[in-house]
Design a binder for these strands. Structure first.
Length: 598
RNA sequence: GCGCCCGUAGCUCAGGCGGAUAGAGCAACGGAUUUCUAAUCCGUAGGUCGCAGGUUCGAGUCCUGCCGGGCGUGCCA
């Protein structure tokens, strides 16, 4: 179904073309700034009047004369300096709602006309470290982008570019060997699932890391082993690789568990870590050298993309090989980018990382283009985001100054939600209380993140994200639960909702709260478009919140089950579509669970 | 020094190619419950959109300068 705003845009633009005889006419249709101006307004006439040097109000009148919107709107009105105000007809609204009712799987939203292959690089935790709050935003914003793109019909390829390579692995492997034997590992592998979760040695991967580091600094023999290990790994020796794989495996199982808890759609198959590109790194450097783009500078091999300056105003290097011969993340990212273009056939690549890496990605993209590794029709985007701050306005840390573990953060959110459920609904079964607490707690953390503009930092506050009022997950989930409650009540009153909705041919939309809700329901697609156009989930949460508010107003003003027979089907449909939209938005697009009762 | 991001109500934040009287939520105050979950709804109050210029019929939005904050700026990622 074509979005209402798109139809209006098309027809009004055409009327503008007819009025002035030139084709660069944009109607610029927007939702009205004030309900008294109607539902939508066209702002484009004033700009056009300037271009053709005519009176904007007169031109607007002319455009309206050429305009046929009888099937959609009341007669358009020209207002102010040259706005065209549009008010939707209830019959049009009814048609749209009935159409969505018939094809409710997509809620009236069309797939993209041209599906693209889109690679989304997100989450990317480091092996041998627990996931902490710093990984939260990339993980869930990236997930949301993937979910929306998928829903719009694109071929989405998730890439979890984990940090599974680097010098620290020498000491980790060395310590692991000290604590176990190669035979143990073979034995472990036979019972893979169990040893991943039960193995004592690597249970606390961070403690393991600290122990390795401490031993590396104090024990010369051990340090020699570690260097041995790293050299072995770099040469691809099976002996050391076995230990490395074991460590990577354990670490992966840790964050896969976090993904499950978070409702994030990352799977094993999406993992392609830094180590996957090891063999490509020399090739990347060689090709850039051969192309005359890379040159030696102070012992390092660098590319100097145009337009980047350092402190002294000299060209800023993109270092792809250190003076000691080691490669950097710049090299790995270039290799990954080539893989995504050449092997994955990406039409677009989206990187979801924090804002501090902006310069890195600008340079990465510039170098890739210099090398002609990406053509102009491939869209490269850095979707960046700000930091999660504590109440004191500095990046969120524990009291001892460590990163807050994601697991602990989620556990606390669930625990807090649990105590609220206990308080509000002590009668629910323990299982139900737990299930609600998990949906609300995890949902609150994710929703709080999504509802903030991703480019700014935001202050993390359990109290705010778990509040029942305001733009929060609990408020959204409550609105949904209220609708489900009506449905349950209907059963006890022998009202067959399915039956009433199935045969529905006409609607009876009259009350302001009904119309208000109906008009907003048909705008779901606008919200999704806005959210994906700039990769901003907060547009989607803002829509859902306003929808829930409009529903709540409807709920207080318009009885559903007790409505007269001529009104009840209409109201049941409004309830049904609101529930479906909220559920779709929350659980399909944002990965936040809804609950039947709370 | 240079570059990027930001500065909007007491607090936390929205604000889609420049559009009409700048919006929410929290906190504050006042109302609403014989009614499908009051975890709600309705209302009141609260603003030099950091400052100063400029472009424009029109600027929170675009340009310039300044002030304040954050981040980045050659061998970490």
């Amino acid at each position: 179904m074509k979005p209402t705003i798109a139809i209006l845009e098309e027809r009004i633009s055409a009327a503008m073309v007819a009025a002035v005889g030139r084709d660069d006419c944009a109607a610029i249709v927007r939702p009205s700034t004030d309900p008294k101006f109607g539902d939508y307004q066209a702002n484009g006439v004033m700009a056009l009047a300037k271009k053709v040097k005519t009176n904007p109000r007169k031109l607007a009148e002319e455009v309206v004369k050429n305009l046929d919107l009888d099937d959609i709107c009341e007669p358009p009105e020209v207002a102010g300096p040259g706005f065209i105000n549009l008010r939707l007809k209830p019959e049009f609204l009814a048609d749209r709602l009935l159409e969505i009712n018939k094809t409710s799987a997509n809620l009236g939203i069309d797939k993209a006309a041209v599906p693209k292959t889109i690679v989304v690089d997100f989450s990317s935790p480091n092996i041998a470290k627990q996931m902490h709050v710093g990984h939260l935003r990339s993980t869930i914003i990236g997930d949301c982008i993937c979910r929306i793109l998928k829903f719009l019909g694109h071929n989405v390829i998730r890439q979890n570019h984990i940090g599974d390579w680097g010098t620290q692995f020498g000491m980790l492997c060395a310590l692991f060997r000290d604590k176990t034997t190669a035979e143990d590992i073979e034995e472990f592998k036979k019972i893979e699932d169990e040893w991943l979760s039960d193995d004592e040695i690597l249970k606390d991967i961070e403690a393991f890391y600290r122990e390795a580091k401490q031993k590396y600094d104090s024990d010369e023999d051990f340090a020699a082993d570690a260097r041995d290990a790293i050299a072995g790994l770099q040469k691809g020796q099976e002996y050391w690789k076995k230990y490395w794989q074991a460590i990577v495996g354990v670490s992966e199982s840790h964050y896969m568990e976090i993904y499950r808890n978070l409702g994030v759609t990352l799977r094993d198959k999406d993992i392609r870590g830094e180590s996957a590109y090891n063999d490509d790194l020399p090739v990347v450097v060689d090709e850039l050298k051969e192309a005359g783009l890379a040159k030696e500078s102070d012992g390092a091999i660098c590319v100097f993309p145009e337009g980047f300056k350092n402190k002294e105003g000299d060209p800023l290097p993109f270092i792809i090989c250190k003076s000691d011969g080691a490669y950097l993340y710049a090299t790995t990212d270039l290799a990954a980018l080539r893989y995504r273009v050449n092997e994955l056939k990406a039409n677009a690549i989206i990187y979801v990382t924090d804002a501090r890496q902006k310069l890195h990605f600008e340079m990465l993209f510039a170098v890739a283009k210099m090398a002609k590794w990406v053509s102009d029709d491939i869209e490269l985007s850095h979707v960046m985001f700000g930091s999660v701050l504590g109440e004191d306005g500095t990046p969120l840390k524990t009291r001892s100054g460590e990163n807050v573990k994601l697991k602990e953060l989620l556990d606390e959110a669930v625990e807090r939600a649990k105590s609220v459920v206990e308080e509000k609904n002590p009668n629910f079964s323990e299982d139900k209380k737990k299930q609600i607490a998990k949906a609300v707690g995890v949902g609150a953390v994710k929703y709080a993140d999504y509802s903030n503009n991703r480019t700014s930092d935001y202050v993390f506050s359990f109290d705010k994200m778990l509040a029942m009022d305001g733009n929060t997950a609990p408020y959204m989930q409550y609105a949904y639960a209220r609708i489900k409650s009506i449905e349950r009540k209907a059963q006890t009153k022998d009202v067959d909702i399915e039956d009433e909705l199935a045969g529905l041919q006409t609607l009876n939309l009259t009350e302001p709260a009904e119309l208000d809700l109906a008009k907003y329901l048909i705008r779901y697609g606008e919200a999704i478009q806005a959210a994906i156009a700039d990769y901003r989930p907060n547009y989607l949460t803002a829509y859902l919140y306003e929808l829930a508010q409009k529903f709540s107003a409807f709920y207080t003003n318009c009885p559903v089950l007790k409505a007269e027979p001529g009104k009840r089907p209409t109201r049941l449909l409004l309830c049904d579509l609101t529930a479906k939209t909220i559920k779709h938005g929350l659980s399909e697009l944002l990965g936040i669970e809804v609950v039947e009762q709370m």
